[in-house]
Each structure stands twice: as C-alpha cells, then as structure tokens.
Amino acid sequence: MSYLPLTVVALLAVTILGITAEPVYAMHISEGILPMGWAVLWFLASLPFVVLGLRNLRIRSEKEPHFKAMVGLVGAGVFVISCMPIPVPIAGTCSHPCGTGLAAILIGPSISVVVSSVALLLQALFLAHGGLTTLGANIFSMGVAGSFAGYGIFVLCRRMGLSFIVAAFLAGVLSDWATYATTSFILTGALHADASFWKMFVTILLAFVPTQVPLGILEGFLSAGAYTFVHSRRPEYLGIFAKGGVA
C-alpha cells in the first residue's frame, strides 16, 4: 500500500501522455513574446527572490540533514508536474499544474523559487517550453507568485485554526490561480500598448478561467494528498505549521 501514491501518479502520467499526442504548454510565456525591456525587468524582479532562496537553502541544508533530499524530491516533482499537460474535458484544452504551492509548504517559499527556476531553465533549454528571454517572467509568475501565494494562504489558514489538509488544499488551488493571474498581468503589461490595461488584463484572465479553475482544484487535491502523506509518515520533515503552531 505504501506504493499507492506512486502508482496513482504513474497511471495518471501514462494516461495523460496517451491522450495528448502532441506536447502542449500552458502558463509558460514563450520565447520572443516579451519586449526586451520587459524581459529584463522581470529578471530583475525575480533575482532577489532567487538569491534569498539560495541563501536559505544553504542555511537549512547545514541544519537539517534530510533537507537536501527533500529539495531533490520536490524539485523533481515540480519539474515533471510543470511540464505535464493535463486535458480539461469541460474546456477541451490542456494545461499543467505548477506544483509550487506544494513545494512552498514543504520546503519554504524562497527555496521553492530556486527549485522553480531550475525547472524552468531546464524546460526552456531542452523542452522548448517557455523561453530564455522570458525566463525571468516565468520565474516570477510560477516561482515567486505561486510559491508565496501558496505559502501565505497555508500560514493564514493554520493561524485561523483550519486543519492542515484544508490549508494544503487551498494553498494548491490559490498558488495555481495566482500563477495564472500573474501571467495575465505580465502579458498585459507588455502587450496592452494603447489599449486599456485593466480591460485587457480581465480579458486574458477570463480566457484562462475555463481551464485553470478545474485544474487549480485538481492541484489543491494533489497538494492536500501529498502533504497528508508526508505528515502521516514523517511529520518531522514539516515545519511548525503542520502541528498547528504559529511562527
């Protein structure tokens, strides 16, 4: 029974790969879409979070013996999840979860940014998924916005006394939605030209809704399931919020 979660993931992966004959992408902003000025701006916006994450990674790796292995597991998970297209039958389209909400509540939001950056760089280099010039923007939407939104919601829910399952579920849902809202914001900022910023932002955001609302809920279940699994097996790997504590 201990292999059940892995079996579920493997079955879903095979199913999805079988259904989607052609690789598809989702929140990743492709090469060349952002003008150079905007591309540089989003690199600069993401940089402090990456530096903070690398610093926290070094500190926590020295203190916690299991931590590097946890980062490795979460990193591999984010890499696979964020390039796995999932068909959404009610919309007739495909998109992918991000995994950064789960990553943030397992290893912390700043280190989740580092993990996302590595995953997005590999995807841009070898999978034509995203782009090198748009890497900063993609790190900001998936890494920064997704991780901090997910972690923030999780902490808030725990402080309100909600169970860790509900908190992890909401972290997964809202981190996914925050990622796509941020992608809409980035696209609008770079592309709206003379048109109304807010009108275009709402238009892009609404275009994501039919696919991302169900997918965000799926990501919520994924986060709640994975967090519950770790909590039941090795609660010492989790932070004090797992025990209902307050930072």
Binding site: V24, M27, H28, T93, C94, T211
Partner: peptide
C-alpha cells in the same frame, strides 16, 4: 486539446 499557451498566450 490545445494548450492554453496557444488558445490564450499566443492568441493575445
């Protein structure tokens, strides 16, 4: 079954 990059990002 197109990705939302085609139906949303690329379109805009």
């Amino acid at each position: 079954w197109s990705g939302v990059d085609d139906s949303v990002v690329k379109k805009f």
